[in-house]
Amino acid sequence: MSLITIWSMEIQRYFELENISHNNSIWKICTKIINKNENKMTGTAKKREIVVSKENREFLKRLFGCTEQTLYNSLDLQKPSSEMRKRIRKAALERGGEVMVTLREMETIHTANGVMEQRLPNGAELRFYREDGHGEIWHKGIMKERVDSVTIPVIYEMQARAAMMR
């Protein structure tokens, strides 16, 4: 288990013990920092961007009088928003641009016997069983971890741990 994941679980426990709402701004800041660092460590980061055709890219550059680099940075939704970037993004979406998310490839199979299997590029495999709600992480044919009472946030944590296996 990574240090970031442990830190995340400790912060979550503290917030639950202190009865602090998940809507609290401190909670949001902590989880944003944790997720950003976890994504960097595990390589599970996703890229969000607005994709437009070549003709629309040229149109946007002429419309806003900007360079290719400025346009590229504006269409990258991971970059902070400025007034210029907001205007470029709005125009790109109005001209048929689409928000795309690029993620690390992961094959997911749902079998008839109630098992969901996910295979990661590094050879790790996750198995989630609907019957009793537990999940397992396998790597190179060996079960590395078993988790009871799996929830959606736990699935994300298990995916991050499995992605770090070598």
Results as ranks from 00 to 15, higher is better:
140 K>F: 10
64 F>V: 09
166 R>I: 12
123 G>I: 10
155 I>G: 00
142 I>M: 14
64 F>Q: 02
68 E>F: 09
127 R>A: 02
12 Q>C: 13
72 Y>M: 08
45 A>F: 07
113 N>I: 11
27 W>D: 01
16 E>W: 02
129 Y>D: 02
67 T>E: 09
95 R>K: 07
161 R>C: 03
34 I>K: 10
37 N>W: 07
165 M>C: 05
115 V>E: 14
165 M>I: 10
65 G>Q: 10
18 E>D: 04
52 V>M: 13
116 M>P: 01
163 A>C: 03
82 S>T: 07
43 G>F: 01
59 F>R: 12
77 L>M: 05
62 R>C: 08
107 E>N: 14
97 G>I: 01
20 I>W: 03
122 N>D: 11
98 E>S: 14
13 R>H: 08
82 S>R: 14
55 E>T: 03
61 K>W: 03
55 E>A: 12
143 M>P: 13
114 G>F: 05
73 N>H: 08
73 N>L: 04
146 R>M: 11
110 H>D: 04
1 M>Y: 04
34 I>H: 02
164 M>G: 15
125 E>C: 09
34 I>Y: 01
137 I>A: 00
70 T>A: 03
138 W>M: 11
109 I>Q: 13
130 R>G: 03
164 M>F: 00
86 K>L: 05
141 G>R: 10
72 Y>V: 01
15 F>Q: 05
55 E>I: 10
30 C>I: 09
76 D>M: 05
65 G>I: 02
107 E>Y: 02
9 M>P: 01
68 E>V: 08
4 I>H: 00
52 V>S: 08
6 I>A: 08
90 K>T: 07
33 I>Q: 08
72 Y>Q: 10
123 G>Q: 12
72 Y>R: 09
12 Q>M: 08
125 E>T: 08
129 Y>N: 05
49 E>A: 14
25 S>F: 08
33 I>T: 13
105 E>A: 10
35 N>G: 14
110 H>V: 14
91 A>F: 00
90 K>Y: 06
29 I>L: 15
112 A>N: 10
86 K>I: 12
36 K>F: 05
136 E>V: 10
154 V>H: 01
113 N>V: 09
94 E>H: 05
102 T>K: 15
125 E>R: 09
155 I>Q: 02
134 H>Y: 01
150 V>C: 06
110 H>P: 03
65 G>F: 00
27 W>E: 01
150 V>Y: 00
37 N>R: 15
163 A>S: 07
135 G>Q: 02
50 I>M: 09
125 E>L: 07
163 A>D: 12
61 K>H: 00
137 I>P: 03
101 V>K: 15
130 R>S: 11
12 Q>S: 06
75 L>N: 12
166 R>A: 09
116 M>G: 00
150 V>R: 00
77 L>G: 11
142 I>H: 04
117 E>Y: 04
30 C>M: 08
146 R>Y: 01
